[in-house]
Simulated scan of single mutants.
Amino acid sequence: MSSESPVSIQIPPELAGQRLDQALAQILPEYSRSRLKGWIEAGRVMLDGRLPRPRDAVSGGEAVELRPLLEPVHHDRPQAIELDVRYEDAAIVVLNKPAGLVVHPAAGNPEGTLLNALLHRAPELAALPRAGIVHRLDKQTSGLMVVAKTPAAHRHLVAALAEHAVGREYLALVQGELIAGGTVDAPIGRHPRDRKRMAVVLGGKHAVSHYRVEERFVGHTLLRVHLETGRTHQIRVHMAHIRHAIVGDPAYGGRLRLPPAAGEALTAQLRGFGRQALHAARLTLEHPVSGEVLSWAADIPDDMHALLDAFRAHRQARSDD
Rank of each mutant, 00 (worst) to 15 (best):
E41S: 10
E41H: 00
E41P: 01
E41Y: 05
A42Q: 08
A42C: 06
G43A: 12
V45F: 04
V45A: 04
M46Q: 11
M46I: 07
L47W: 07
L47F: 00
D48A: 14
D48M: 09
G49R: 07
L51M: 08
L51T: 12
R55P: 05
A57K: 14
S59M: 11
G60R: 05
G60M: 07
G61N: 10
A63N: 08
A63F: 09
V64A: 07
E65P: 01
L66D: 05
L66W: 03
R67I: 11
R67M: 11
R67N: 13
R67W: 11
P68V: 05
L69C: 08
L69G: 05
L70G: 13
P72C: 08
P72W: 03
P72M: 13
V73M: 15
V73P: 01
V73A: 02
H74P: 02
H74T: 14
H75N: 10
Q79F: 03
Q79M: 15
A80Y: 03
A80S: 13
D84C: 12
D84L: 09
D84A: 14
Y87I: 06
E88F: 00
D89P: 14
A90D: 15
A90Q: 11
A91V: 07
A91W: 08
V94G: 08
L95G: 03
N96I: 03
A99P: 10
A99W: 04
L101Y: 06
V103E: 01
H104G: 06
A106P: 05
G108M: 03
N109T: 04
P110F: 14
E111I: 00
E111M: 07
G112H: 06
G112V: 09
L114K: 02
L115Q: 08
N116C: 12
N116Y: 01
N116G: 08
L118I: 06
L118N: 00
R121G: 00
R121H: 15
R121S: 10
P123Q: 12
E124L: 14
E124H: 14
E124F: 03
A127E: 14
L128M: 09
L128S: 02
L128T: 02
P129W: 10
A131I: 06
A131C: 12
G132S: 10
G132D: 07
G132L: 07
V134N: 01
H135W: 15
R136P: 07
D138Q: 12
D138S: 12
K139P: 09
Q140H: 14
T141I: 07
G143C: 08
V146G: 02
V146H: 01
V147Y: 00
A148H: 06
P151K: 10
A153E: 03
H154L: 14
H154M: 13
R155C: 01
H156M: 13
L157Y: 05
V158N: 09
A162L: 06
A165H: 09
V166Q: 05
V166I: 15
R168K: 14
E169Q: 13
L171N: 06
L173C: 06
